[in-house]
Amino acid sequence: MPRAVKGVLVECDPSIKAIILKIDEDFHHAFIVEDLDHQTLVVKESKLAELKERLEKILEKTQMMEKEEESDPEQPG
């Protein structure tokens, strides 16, 4: 009889997945339920928010976002 496990399917780029694997390893495998393929994995539902937050933090350090265009071209000044 097959088993069903509750979780969240995460689809992402391989580069992002590498970071997720690293986070999982650093926290004693608290996040990942099953590693499916190079761009899909299943994580614990309760940990998704925390995972996203950690991922954002790491990406903030590594990536530069371009400056927001604040000026409105049709309203000089």
Binding site: M1, P2, R3, A4, V5, K6, G7, V8, L9, V10, E11, C12, D13, I16, I20, V33, E34, V42, V43, E45, L48, K52, L55, L59
Partner: peptide, 18 residues
């Protein structure tokens, strides 16, 4: 950066046919 979908993972099927 990632697409999350809630749901269920089915595994441990006894045969491929199954």
């Amino acid at each position: 950066r990632m697409k999350a979908t809630g749901g269920f993972l089915f595994k441990d099927f006894t045969t491929t046919q199954d």
